[in-house]
Design a protein around this nucleic acid. Structure first.
Lengths: 186, 186
DNA sequence: CTTTAATCTTATCGTTGTTAAGATATTAAC
DNA sequence: GTTAATATCTTAACAACGATAAGATTAAAG
């Protein structure tokens, strides 16, 4: 909070928070820098003291969501005592994250799809697959298996909002059934 | 072609074609109705005689691409003589379609994700899975298997543009290896 | 206290989607 | 074939948008 009304004091963070909230509610399509500035009580040009342009602003929000996403994944891995269920639990957390905030999905993966080789959630997931199946599979199978599993979980997360396809009441069980339908150990 | 310069004669189709071309080259983000109208040699208000608004126009393009997508899938199924390879061939065609036109993917599946229960490519894919695996699997396994496979192929198509992950030179072989890494019959 | 840098406002620009009112050509009715 | 109705286009205008420049205000550094 600023003492006076000229300097806001915490504009950068407030813009990011308000932006997050807006995207969660309405999607990124109709997000406007001007409306955001107004709702923060500053002029329409003020945001450009903190962000180079709109894309730069959206990138900041994207990074923030990705961090939250990573938190969920690492927490799921940490609280999973049964090693054999690690990938299942990861998948459930993955899908559930985007089920709770469906509009984040298209926002994250539509504009500038992240480079997987430097995308922390993917790298973490790959480590988990290696930890779980590394001893059962040769190098090739492992490589293709990682891609196959990631694709499936990622694709699945994109489908969760489709009505009727997956019962929202039973996300964990449904996800588990879907994921255990396939087997990459053979 | 119109005789005079006042009436264009084929504006609706030309706009769709020009729009397709633009999205293929630059993505939908920067597409502008005005520039499109100008490139077609008409005034900026002319397109609104044929489309209610921009979203209505994009929907028309979306439908057109989906038709082309369906053509590719049905052709792949038709030319596949070996029944046991049907799903593999479908997956390869699916991924290859979006590899050839990467920007179509985010355009199609980002705005207004299609309702799968009425989405012809998905319905067709489901029929193919039932044809291929229906006798091996019970109802539940079939249901979850369809979702799992579709998710994987769909997610895979979204990852193909990521450099290094899949070698563009060997799309069919790579896709086949990835898809055959998993087994839903068990 | 003075200087420097960060942050904000005001004013303005070009671009966009969209609509209204009217002009022109095509089609249908008679 | 002339007229009436309809489809299609133009011109003009509006509000909203992203962005920038120039200058005001405050905070930080010396």
């Amino acid at each position: 909070m600023a003492k006076n009304s000229y300097h806001h004091g915490n504009l950068k963070n407030e813009l990011i928070e308000k932006g997050l909230e807006y995207i969660d509610r309405n999607g990124v399509e109709s997000l406007s820098m001007r409306k955001l500035a107004e709702s923060a009580g500053v002029s329409c040009a003020a945001p450009y003291s903190h962000f180079k342009n709109k894309q730069d602003f959206l990138k900041a929000i994207q990074d923030y969501i990705t961090e939250r996403f990573m938190d969920v994944l690492t927490a799921a891995a940490e609280y999973c005592r049964d090693r054999s269920r690690l990938l299942i639990e990861l998948g459930i957390s993955y899908v559930r994250f985007f089920y709770k905030n469906p509009l984040y999905y298209s926002f994250l993966f539509n504009r500038n799809f992240p480079d997987l080789e430097t995308y922390s959630p993917f790298l973490f997931f790959r480590e988990c697959v290696i930890m779980t199946l590394g001893k059962d599979l040769d190098e090739d199978k492992l490589r293709y298996g990682v891609i196959a599993l990631w694709s499936m979980v990622h694709g699945l997360a994109g489908l969760i909002t489709v009505e009727g396809l997956i019962d929202p009441e039973h996300i964990p069980e449904e996800i588990e059934k879907i994921l255990t339908t396939v087997d990459i150990r053979r």
